[in-house]
């Protein structure tokens, strides 16, 4: 009986913490939607407003009129999807190699991969721009995609997850004569789906919101402008009051696809993967 009371108490505590935290987490997200329906005056008001007096649905139409948002969508989707696919592919291959294959120079190479994450992005801008010019890619999607095709973060993440797969499982496959590539594609990849989904979400969002590099590259290739760069064109030099409400509305256009993507990839968490079957191998 006593045990049951403790259990109920713990459950109440659990949900209290979850709900309390959730409130703080959703606040700005909620405000963004609410603010996208406000007038400029409401945004200027001194006391923070959480709801518009009368929702200005017209803001959404106005954004459509002012900027070619569907062209931006197209460009952002092409870039973010390509990068995500490339990152998933290169990271899982390298992650598998680092976690499960033995070869000379493995540790040094892995340290090298880690070190690629350790330089501030600003020093890459000039040399990488030069490479893009050299390859003649400045007017193509390639300049937005290729420089992000490999991610040290992704390699490290997937290496950590592949490591948790029991060696015995792979060895039994090797005894069957499975080649390394088949091990990679038929055993490793299915087993690390939650990690792949995580990496996909994080990579996609990173690219979807990426600003500085696309801005620099697309300034002389306006047909390639991506969503965040396009939205930034709504703002003025110093004071953004006139267009602030439109910027916030445009940001809703930017956020919604990511919400959908997240909810879609959630199913990989819900199912998850249960290793139990192998624990007694």
């Amino acid at each position: 009986m006593n045990k049951k009371v403790t259990k109920i108490f713990l459950e109440i505590l659990r949900y209290t913490i979850i709900v309390f935290g959730a409130f703080w987490m959703i606040l700005p997200f909620f405000w963004l939607f609410s603010a996208s329906l406000m007038t400029p005056q409401e945004l200027l008001s001194d006391t923070p407003r959480w709801l518009p007096e009368r929702p200005q649905w017209g803001n959404y139409l106005q954004v459509l009129k002012r900027v070619p948002i569907f062209t931006y969508y197209k460009n952002s989707v092409i870039v973010a999807t390509s990068v995500t696919v490339l990152v998933i592919l290169t990271s899982s291959m390298a992650g598998f190699a680092f976690a499960k294959l033995r070869f000379r120079g493995r540790r040094i190479l892995f340290s090298f991969v880690l070190s690629t994450m350790m330089f501030p992005v600003f020093i890459f801008l000039i040399p990488v721009y030069y490479l893009m010019k050299l390859f003649g890619w400045l007017n193509s999607y390639l300049s937005l995609i290729v420089p992000f095709a490999v991610s040290g973060y992704g390699i490290f993440l997937l290496r950590q997850f592949v490591m948790t797969i029991p060696d015995e499982l792979l060895d039994s496959a090797r005894l069957d004569g499975a080649k390394e590539f088949r091990i990679y594609s038929t055993i490793i990849l299915p087993l690390i789906k939650p990690a792949l989904a995580t990496l996909a979400i994080l990579t996609f969002i990173g690219q979807w919101n990426s600003f500085l590099w696309p801005l620099i590259v697309t300034s002389n290739a306006q047909k390639l402008i991506t969503l965040p760069v396009g939205i930034s064109r709504l703002s003025l030099a110093f004071s953004t009051t006139e267009t602030q409400h439109l910027i916030l509305t445009a940001l809703v256009y930017q956020v919604v696809p990511m919400v959908i993507l997240f909810l879609y990839l959630q199913r990989y968490y819900v199912k998850g993967f249960v290793l139990s079957g192998f624990s007694n191998l």
């Binding site: 592919l89 290169t90 890459f124």
Partner: peptide
């Protein structure tokens, strides 16, 4: 595994040498 290892790392290493 040496050959396979480098094969799996090849795309990443090629990329890093350039970028």
């Amino acid at each position: 595994n040496t050959g396979a290892g480098y094969l799996f790392l090849a795309p990443a290493l090629l990329f890093y040498s350039l970028f």
